[in-house]
Simulated scan of single mutants.
Amino acid sequence: MDSQNKTIVVTGATTGIGRATAEMLARARVDVIGVGRSAELCRQVEASLGGRYPNARVHYLTADLSQQSEVRRLAREIGACLAADGKTALDGLVNNAGTFAYWFSQTPDGVETQWAVNHLAGFLLTQELLPVLRAAPSARVVNVSSDSHYSGRIQWDDPQLRRRYNGLSAYGNTKLANILFALELNRRLGNDSNVHAYAVDPGLVKTDIGMKGTPALAGWVWKVRRMGGTSIEVPARCIVYLLTEPSVQHSTELYWKNCQPKRASRRALDEESAARLWTLSENLCGLTER
């Protein structure tokens, strides 16, 4: 894919995998719209990348993706960014923002926090941006999942684990949802669509996701475990590959790691579960009222 004059949105783009992805794209002269929670971090990263890669437009927007009103506002601001740059199409979306919650908590929308950030935010943002994604000659949606999805098992009578919450189980379930969402999106769009979705396994990466808001022992375990992880550039390279490589536009391979297809779990490839998750997600986002 010709990188010049392309625009790609990356959520969770101020640190970790998201920032590395944004930097690789800017280096390839792709215009980047990064998303983060901290206004100060967004300003810093925008200035840094914009200064180092003057051949790419770099915009950073702030949003709390745990709140659906913020996701909808973000989609409108992305549209305004495109218009300001004289563009009517979006060439890619990376649903990378994620969180881990050891204890049960819920957002102002009444949704369990991991479920809201790790799955529903990407689901809703993709729906809101579909018109501009469809306007591109070829557009990609990349969901950052995890090998934690192999242990995931969505309990349809209690998908947010309200009755018996376990942070690790909830995390694995949301990573399973990332793949199911990509599977169902591709089915609904059809084989000939110019928009195609993928899910990425970043592997064990040296990030702080397992150290935020956790008990001291759990944080220590994550700190030791991540020592054996790869650098953030490794999964970022796979994400950029899926965003820009022409040969994968109509690939039937859904789940990727290190720029190679990988077999997802049986539950992640279950079409009935994917359709059921889509309906559940629409209900939780109020999309069925449209």
Results as ranks from 00 to 15, higher is better:
M1H: 08
V224C: 08
L125W: 07
L217D: 04
V200G: 05
F100P: 08
D208R: 09
W256S: 00
A26N: 01
P54K: 13
E23F: 06
A170K: 05
L49P: 13
R29N: 12
S48G: 06
E184C: 02
N191I: 07
P137Y: 04
Y241T: 04
L183V: 01
F104S: 15
S3Q: 11
P131R: 06
T230H: 13
A83L: 10
G79C: 10
S69W: 02
V144G: 00
T214R: 09
G79D: 03
E271M: 02
P215S: 05
N258H: 07
P246L: 10
T62K: 08
S105G: 12
N95R: 02
W256P: 08
N55Y: 14
W103Y: 01
V240D: 04
G92K: 03
K212H: 13
R237H: 09
V205D: 12
E289A: 15
A97F: 14
V205F: 12
R72W: 01
F123H: 11
A197F: 10
R226F: 10
K206L: 05
T279P: 07
S145Q: 13
G210N: 05
R266W: 13
I239S: 10
F104A: 14
E77G: 05
R72V: 00
T11I: 02
A56R: 00
T14C: 12
L41F: 07
L242H: 07
G110R: 06
R37L: 04
